[in-house]
Design a protein around this nucleic acid. Structure first.
Length: 739
DNA sequence: AGCACGCCGACT
DNA sequence: GTCGGCGTGCTC
């Protein structure tokens, strides 16, 4: 006779430790049950924590006398399916991150904190008073009457169904005030909605072009293939996704759609909801914690048929996943930049492979990694070359800035074209890649520049409100009236920011709406959608914005796009600069001329003859990408090699440097440098000091991914054992995006 | 990561 | 005489 006391569970806890911890099963638990993937509350050290049960066994390698009982098992049904657990295990391993923290990042915050995982749905129920009403009551409030009639025939009105009946929350609130209805929590029924095809679709699909049809016919739904879907803006990528998903849903399986971090994209979601009658669950940071939890659980239970979200959605449990779509796969936001530094794209490729399902990476400007994989046959290459409908590709021209006077970042020639565009009643976009008024404040007399006291960075001048702002540590201070060095009052803004262009254009085009879209403007106004309504109305206006504006919004009346400065990408110290520049140019060009209007793109540059820019504009992204790949191959750079970056930071610079020296020594004693393995560092990070902390890094470049993984697995373990490792704040970044 | 324990400086 | 600085060690 065994009791729960004889059973041990291995628990992963959200601590930066690379081992798991054994506990005894709580006495009330059932030793025959399978608790793998369930949360468990435990005492750990001096505090209570929530961990994930990894396994259950009758022996432990830890001294049994020291093992205490876990407090309580928190889930009836595992939060982590075997599939998700395997995925997280892989991620923890590949990205060298502790498993407990990895599992923790996969969960929505309330679940992390131990809140109940019993999924509930908000619903409305009639009160006794409400039940007494005749069906014909509430004639004067149409929406309320519809709700009443529904409730007289059904026990509950789910919030989700209310939306389908076009009844909003104010209607229900009004009825609640009258005492007719009350709010209740309903446990969702376990339906397996394998609807017939005609019930899945809310609208009929668009007719496919020959090209789309051909691409779609290449998809196989019953085994793993990674497809690179390369298609220009407007070539119908989304329709391709929609029809691929429809076929997946018909087969009774779920779809996962990953999109870049939303700057301006509720549109994508709307498009999915418009097409499909089944439930679409959103998972991104604009969804409230409780809603996110509900959606996460709905995905696990199969109630959500389509999950659409940002990179965090890639770590969501799916009951029966049938396809993964990664839209704008080249987008940097798919790589997490702290904690578990995972790439949602790469993780999803692994996931699709494990599940033996298709995955589609879509982009007009594929990342060099994906492009390389497509060329070498690891990915299936699908191409959509034609713009759907009447839209023609825009004309792209370069504006030589050499020797030209610039006003608010624009030269006379560009302003003249802007003017003509507005006169024709059309809309224009001006891209400026820095927010604020000017990236620095300079003393004209002695050359002093306003610097951040905590970072190696200049302070950015903002005018609305008027202050100096550090974009790296967020410090803010009032603008100096006199130079602190020479007391001269002659302090001038230097360089260009979005506010400056906005201000000048407002003076230059007093009768035209000037709309600025960047992180500052969207933070202040919650009414982004209203602002955008002006744009959608099609009336002449000028939009000014950072990259944010380039991401997936569709404005039909944009005739002109001006890129104020594309030189930064060309001159960048980061070897990925040109790739980014090209992606921006092509993406931005896609904003121009999507309706009937022919588009025009002006690229302002001080080096308009730069060979890479020339190649991109005359030969297109494909040949440009091939050229970059050649350069990368010669330079022993990704995707021909694989990199890892070990970062360390400390208030005392020597501390971080010493740690990295030790790390390098440990690693190179395992695998000495060779032609196939290079170490570089410790070297200062691009910005050495941020927020009073000094940052250094060690670069490791390896010819093979396998070798790099082996080195890291063994090396990190050794590094971890050193005393220095505990004193230093350090992290590992496998496949870094930013070097 | 947290948190406690522990051993040295400026304060009521 | 104490409050509190952060170095070191530990967590099943």
């Amino acid at each position: 006779m065994t009791t729960t006391q004889d059973w041990f569970i291995s628990v992963a806890l959200p601590v930066p430790l690379r081992n798991t911890f054994d506990y005894r099963l709580p006495t009330e638990a059932d030793p025959t049950a399978n608790y793998m993937g369930c949360r468990v509350a435990v005492n750990f050290g001096h505090q209570a924590m929530v961990g994930i049960i990894l396994s259950c066994h009758q022996t432990s390698t830890y001294d049994p006398a020291k093992i205490v009982a876990a407090l309580e098992i928190l889930d009836h049904k595992p939060l982590f399916t075997a599939e998700l657990l395997n995925l997280c295990w892989w991620a923890a391993d590949y990205y060298q991150h502790p498993l407990g923290e990895t599992l923790s990042t996969a969960m929505p915050t309330p679940l992390r904190q131990g809140k109940s995982s019993a999924p509930t749905l908000a619903a409305w129920q009639l009160t006794t008073e409400g039940k007494g009403l005749p069906e014909t009551a509430l004639k004067r409030a149409k929406k309320q009457q519809i709700a009443l009639q529904y409730l007289l025939h059904n026990d509950f009105l789910l919030d989700a169904d209310a939306r389908k009946l076009d009844i909003n929350s104010t209607t229900m609130a009004a009825m609640q005030k009258k005492g007719l209805v009350e709010k209740v929590e309903r446990v969702p029924e376990h339906q397996a909605p394998k609807d017939a095809a005609d019930q899945l679709l809310r609208e009929s699909p668009l007719a496919l072009t020959e090209e789309q049809e051909a691409a779609l016919s290449q998809l196989s739904f019953h085994r793993y293939t990674c497809y690179l879907l390369e298609g220009a803006t407007g070539s119908g990528k989304t329709e391709f996704y929609l029809q691929a998903i429809a076929r997946t849903l018909q087969a009774g399986k779920q779809a996962l759609v990953l999109i870049p971090e939303i700057g301006l994209t509720p549109q994508t979601v709307a498009r999915f909801e418009q097409r499909f009658a089944c439930s679409v669950a959103e998972l991104h940071s604009n969804v409230s914690d409780s809603q996110r939890t509900n959606n996460w659980l709905a995905a696990r239970d199969g109630r959500a048929r389509i999950v659409i979200g940002t990179r965090l959605a890639s770590l969501c449990p799916m009951q029966d996943l049938g396809i993964i779509i990664v839209d704008e796969e080249h987008d940097l936001s798919f790589k997490q930049q702290d904690g578990l530094r995972y790439s949602a794209r790469d993780l999803s490729i692994y996931r699709a492979n494990q599940l033996q399902i298709p995955i589609v990476l879509g982009s007009a400007t594929p990342s060099l990694e994906s492009f390389y994989n497509a060329i070498h046959g690891r990915f299936a290459h699908l191409r959509l070359t034609r713009r759907a409908g009447a839209a023609k590709p825009p004309t792209i021209s370069r504006v030589d800035l050499r020797g030209k006077t610039l006003t608010a970042g624009l030269c006379d020639a560009s302003v003249a074209v802007l003017e003509k565009t507005i006169e024709r009643g059309q809309q224009a976009i001006v891209f400026v890649n820095r927010r604020g008024y000017a990236p620095s404040l300079l003393c004209h007399h002695c050359g002093w520049i306003a610097e951040c006291p905590s970072c190696d960075a200049n302070l950015t001048l903002h005018k609305a409100p008027y202050h100096l702002h550090c974009h790296h540590c967020d410090a803010q201070k009032p603008v100096n009236r006199h130079c602190p060095q020479c007391n001269s009052p002659d302090l001038n803004p230097r360089g260009l920011g979005t506010e400056q262009t906005e201000q000048w254009l407002e003076e230059r085009f007093p009768d035209t709406p000037i709309i600025r879209i960047d992180r500052d403007s969207t933070r202040q106004k919650n009414s982004l959608q209203e602002t955008l309504a002006v744009v959608k109305s099609g009336k002449p206006c000028i939009l000014i914005g950072t990259q944010m504006l380039a991401k997936g919004h569709h404005f039909p009346n944009i005739a002109l796009v001006v890129i104020a400065d594309c030189d930064q990408g060309l001159m960048s110290a980061d070897y990925r600069g040109p790739e980014r520049m090209a992606q921006l140019v092509i993406q931005v060009a896609g904003r121009a001329g999507r309706g009937e209007i022919p588009g025009q793109v002006l690229i302002q540059s001080h080096s308009p003859d730069h060979p890479l820019l020339d190649l991109l504009l005359t030969k297109g992204y494909h040949l440009f990408a091939r050229q970059l790949l050649n350069e990368r191959q010669t330079a022993f750079l990704p995707p021909f090699t694989h990199q890892c970056l070990i970062r360390a930071e400390s208030k005392r610079p020597q501390n971080a440097i010493d740690f990295l020296k030790m790390a390098r020594q440990q690693l190179s004693s395992l695998m000495p440098p060779s032609q196939q393995l290079q170490y570089l560092g410790p070297i200062p990070a691009r910005m050495e000091r941020v927020n009073e902390r000094f940052r250094y890094q060690l670069h490791i470049t390896a010819g093979s991914r396998k070798a790099l993984q082996k080195l890291l697995k063994e090396g990190i373990e050794k590094i971890d054992q050193q005393a220095l490792a505990r004193r230093t704040r350090w992290s590992v970044d496998v496949d870094p995006q930013e070097v």
